[in-house]
C-alpha cells in the first residue's frame, strides 16, 4: 500500500477549513468590530496550512499504514452514534438509547460469548441502564429528556 503523506492531507484539510470560513465572510456583510479579528486570524491559518504542505515536501510525516484505521466495528460505532444523535428527539431518549445500547453490546460481544443467555442479559442490562439514567436526569437533575414516541412516561 502506498504510504500517505499526513502533511499534505493535514494542510489540505486546513485550507478547506479556511475556505469554509472565507466563503461565509465574503458572502455576508459584517461590522468592522465583528471582522477585526477573523480577518487577521484566517490568513494566519491559511499560511500555516501552506507551511504544513511545504513541510510535506521537505520533511514529510508519512503514515506507516493506512492513516484512518477503519474496521467493521468502528463503522458500526460511528453509524450507531450518528443514528443515536439524529434520532434522539424523533424516537425519544428511552427508545433510541435502548436500541443503540443493546445493538452495540451485541456487536461487540465475541462469537464465543454470544449465547441466548448473554443476549437476554444484555437486553435487561440495556433497559435497566437507560431507565436508570433517565430517572437520574429527569427526577434528580431536573433535566427534560426528549420523549419521542414514548409519551406515557
Amino acid at each position: 500500500m502506498q504510504r500517505l503523506n499526513r502533511d499534505f492531507l493535514g494542510g489540505g484539510t486546513l485550507l478547506a477549513i479556511c475556505a469554509f470560513f472565507y466563503v461565509q465572510m465574503a458572502g455576508n456583510e459584517f461590522s468592522a468590530y465583528g471582522m477585526y479579528f477573523p480577518e487577521r486570524v484566517l490568513p494566519i491559518l491559511a499560511i500555516l496550512a501552506v507551511l504544513i504542505i511545504i513541510k510535506g515536501f521537505v520533511k514529510p510525516s508519512r503514515a506507516e499504514g493506512p492513516i484512518f484505521r477503519f474496521n467493521k466495528n468502528m463503522i458500526i460505532t460511528l453509524v450507531t452514534g450518528l443514528c443515536w444523535v439524529f434520532l434522539l428527539e424523533r424516537l425519544g431518549f428511552l427508545l433510541v438509547s435502548f436500541l443503540c445500547l443493546f445493538g452495540l453490546q451485541c456487536v461487540f460481544t465475541s462469537r464465543e460469548e454470544r449465547t441466548l443467555k448473554s443476549v437476554l442479559w444484555q437486553l435487561a442490562g440495556s433497559l435497566v441502564t437507560v431507565v436508570f439514567f433517565y430517572h437520574i436526569f429527569v427526577q434528580y437533575l431536573g433535566v427534560t429528556l426528549p420523549k419521542g414516541l414514548i409519551t406515557f412516561m
Partner: peptide
C-alpha cells in the same frame, strides 16, 4: 463503549 456514548449523548 456504548456506556460512554450514552453518557456523552445524555
Amino acid at each position: 463503549i456504548p456506556g460512554i456514548i450514552l453518557l456523552t449523548v445524555v
